[in-house]
Computed example of a mutant assay.
Amino acid sequence: MRVMVLVKATADSEQGFSPTPENAAMLEAMGKYNEELVKAGILLAADGLRPSSDGKRIAFDGPGRSVIDGPFAETRELVAGFWLWEVKDMAEAVAWVKRCPNPMPGPSEIEIRPLYEMGDLQ
């Protein structure tokens, strides 16, 4: 089963990344965690996202399209980064997320969402 593991944005992540000793330690811990995911054969892709102020949204209404410039107001609804994993089931994904170092300087959340597989759509 493939899952998207979403690191939810925080006020800190929306300010953008700046190199600090605290961030360096967090990046090192996350690098080690990612190495464990690779060795376990779980990690398919991973990356961090720039703040929403660097982003755009495209709103669809019938044939019309509108471009909305960031930043976007509801930080708790934004994603700061992601992993794409191949796991045997949701329990395995939860177990791996519980091992993850905190991805933010303060309180944070990680969401796990299964991807549709071709069999789900037939």
Score class of each variant (00 low, 15 high):
2 R>L: 06
3 V>M: 02
3 V>W: 00
4 M>S: 02
8 K>D: 12
8 K>F: 12
8 K>A: 09
9 A>V: 04
14 E>R: 03
15 Q>N: 14
17 F>Y: 15
18 S>C: 14
19 P>E: 14
20 T>V: 10
22 E>N: 06
23 N>K: 14
25 A>G: 05
26 M>G: 10
26 M>T: 11
27 L>Y: 13
29 A>N: 05
30 M>D: 04
30 M>T: 10
32 K>S: 11
32 K>N: 13
33 Y>E: 01
33 Y>H: 09
34 N>H: 09
35 E>V: 07
36 E>G: 15
38 V>Q: 13
38 V>A: 08
39 K>V: 05
40 A>H: 13
41 G>T: 04
43 L>Q: 03
43 L>P: 00
44 L>D: 11
44 L>N: 02
46 A>R: 14
47 D>C: 09
49 L>A: 03
49 L>S: 02
50 R>A: 14
50 R>D: 10
51 P>L: 09
52 S>C: 13
53 S>A: 14
53 S>L: 13
58 I>A: 12
60 F>H: 13
62 G>F: 08
65 R>L: 14
65 R>A: 04
66 S>I: 10
69 D>Q: 13
70 G>S: 09
71 P>T: 11
73 A>K: 10
73 A>Y: 11
75 T>I: 13
75 T>Y: 02
76 R>P: 08
76 R>T: 15
80 A>E: 03
81 G>R: 06
86 E>Y: 09
87 V>R: 02
87 V>A: 04
88 K>M: 05
88 K>Q: 10
89 D>S: 10
90 M>I: 11
90 M>R: 13
91 A>L: 03
92 E>K: 01
93 A>Y: 00
94 V>D: 15
96 W>E: 02
96 W>N: 04
97 V>Y: 04
97 V>W: 00
98 K>C: 15
101 P>D: 05
102 N>F: 13
103 P>G: 05
106 G>R: 06
108 S>C: 10
110 I>E: 01
110 I>G: 02
110 I>W: 06
110 I>S: 02
111 E>Q: 03
112 I>R: 03
112 I>Q: 01
113 R>D: 14
116 Y>D: 11
117 E>P: 07
119 G>H: 08
119 G>A: 14
119 G>W: 05
119 G>Y: 07
120 D>P: 01
121 L>Y: 07
122 Q>H: 12
